[in-house]
Design a binder for these strands. Sequence first.
DNA 1: TGTTAGCACTCTAACGAAAAGAGTGCTAAC
DNA 2: GTTAGCACTCTTTTCGTTAGAGTGCTAACA
Lengths: 348, 348
Amino acid sequence: MADQELDLRKKIILKAIVDDYVSTAEPVGSRTIAKKYDMGLSPATIRNEMADLEDMGYLIQPHTSSGRVPSDKGYRTYVNELLNTDIKTVTNLVSMQSYLEKKIDEFRELIHVASEMLSEITKYTAVSVVSAVDELRVKAIQLAPLEKAKVLVVVVMSNDAIQNKMVTVDAGLKPDDILKLSKVLNDKFVGLSISNIKSININDIVYLIGAENLSILPIIDGVLDCMNRCADSEVYHKGEANMFMHPEFGDIDKAKNMLQVLHSDDKLKELFANANADGGYIIKIGSENFTEDMNDCAIISATYNINDTCVGTIGVIGPKRMNYAKVISALEYIKNKINSHTEESGNE
Amino acid sequence: MADQELDLRKKIILKAIVDDYVSTAEPVGSRTIAKKYDMGLSPATIRNEMADLEDMGYLIQPHTSSGRVPSDKGYRTYVNELLNTDIKTVTNLVSMQSYLEKKIDEFRELIHVASEMLSEITKYTAVSVVSAVDELRVKAIQLAPLEKAKVLVVVVMSNDAIQNKMVTVDAGLKPDDILKLSKVLNDKFVGLSISNIKSININDIVYLIGAENLSILPIIDGVLDCMNRCADSEVYHKGEANMFMHPEFGDIDKAKNMLQVLHSDDKLKELFANANADGGYIIKIGSENFTEDMNDCAIISATYNINDTCVGTIGVIGPKRMNYAKVISALEYIKNKINSHTEESGNE
DNA sequence: TGTTAGCACTCTAACGAAAAGAGTGCTAAC
DNA sequence: GTTAGCACTCTTTTCGTTAGAGTGCTAACA
């Protein structure tokens, strides 16, 4: 129970146990450790150490006569103290190299490709959450009269998010009016945030283009709708089928539970919302995830910034028995790629 | 084995068996039918009829001393002959009424809402496939110079599909050039199909705006990319978690299998590609789905047209033991809504 | 004092026999 | 043509029994 520092041998044994459990998903016994990780010790000695580690809370014994399994604390120590040296070496990311090299001009596209990649490499489920941002500014607005009272509204925000919407307007509105309106909207709106725009008096605009109030309202609504959608938080996940390749979800009920969570954007937002991780990762193991359904899961996530306005999180969700080294190095790689991408694209 | 017509009593019994099996998911015994569906017959009589029905191939006995389960042929007869009278009456679609009433201006949005609705009502998984169409024509093209060599390309096609793409251009390209190019592209491209456009000589356009060849190529590429994406087939599914609420997927392997299929757009396209259903539904039961993984599933789908250019399919995938009446009536409703929507929006 | 061999003990997973239950098919009576 | 009765079949459940894996403890060893 005592929370004292582990001596070197205990650390080595703990690491061996976690490593073994991560790859086999079976409780590991003393014999296995002695043989497989030849440490020049007999099973009996290792048994003693394991008993100690259990007393200290690093291991759990599912039942009296089975091998040991890491506790959350065990995983935590593994991640915090035993893994560091490994991380750089595990990185075999050759396959990724070409992936993100291709031209990506749009923020959302970038995040989607990155998530796809992440799930592909790690074989877990990748999740990305684009946080809601109020303080985005308008970069451009485009109105395109199409036909018969239909106008296409396109809005680009400062995070390069693009949204469009088709709106129906009064048939009396001339294409020329719309083009004039487009110009006015750009002059008036570009550089402003959503809250700014909401405070603008519509009548000023109506006056400028000389149209009737009613006829341009749908367009303004469309613009605001697009802006809101750009600023809205968005959850994206990729590779959820990977989740069910792991034996911990062999139980159909757990699998169902898991699917439920993966399909609930709100739950995911909650789990991945951790804006306070400056440049590092957040690793949540088992019960550290406040949601109870996730007790068998671990989450590793990192945040990225885009010119200080838009902060998002990208990460991986998988079984607690997760290949932490691999995931962390993959995440490291992806995060750097995202950051360098958004830098070079040079948003002011 | 003889393929003769069923007499009335056999039909009633078959219907009772399917109904019961649909709601309980357990093999149905003679006693159950006699008691629950009081038809004034003793279990023994019903047993005889059931034995006949089995001989004729309408029922299957999982093992010698269990109740009966409908065969694919049994379901087929149920659907074709025994269900018709019910369909209209089962329709309790009050909850849907308000759903599709709201203003929907965009084709894709419409299909998504419809799919969502369909899965919501039926509690199965809704799938929609927008078929690939080569002969779409361009309705409008918009270019918007943003900042620092970035141009937003927006393309609207005749099926109201909208796609945009951010492209990077030579920094030397002036905003004015881009606006000019926008006008030229619209003049030249609107009304043409993709194949038409591919045959246009780029040099003509370059000449018209007086820009250098290289600098506008990314934009043309962007336009073509958008067009291709508009014309591409798209698969959308909603409510896949519903699939796992049914006991036939209590086996984790089947569930995994199912997930695999649901996440494979190609498989879904194959399963839902049935353009030859003029105004009706296509119902595929068990082995009638050529994919083997789907032997436990049924698929009910309907097609919709939009001014004869874009044909899509929307439908439901669920266990073979499916509430056919409910799904068909829901699909009927949705299909009509989609059609009336696209009519009233009046695309030429 | 730390390490190890040996052994009894515990718990699970796997196997198999037995019992319970559901439903049938058949025969004979109505 | 319908039904009651009964033997029969097959599955599902239950309950021991066994084999195996792994432990904890004790005693011997270096």
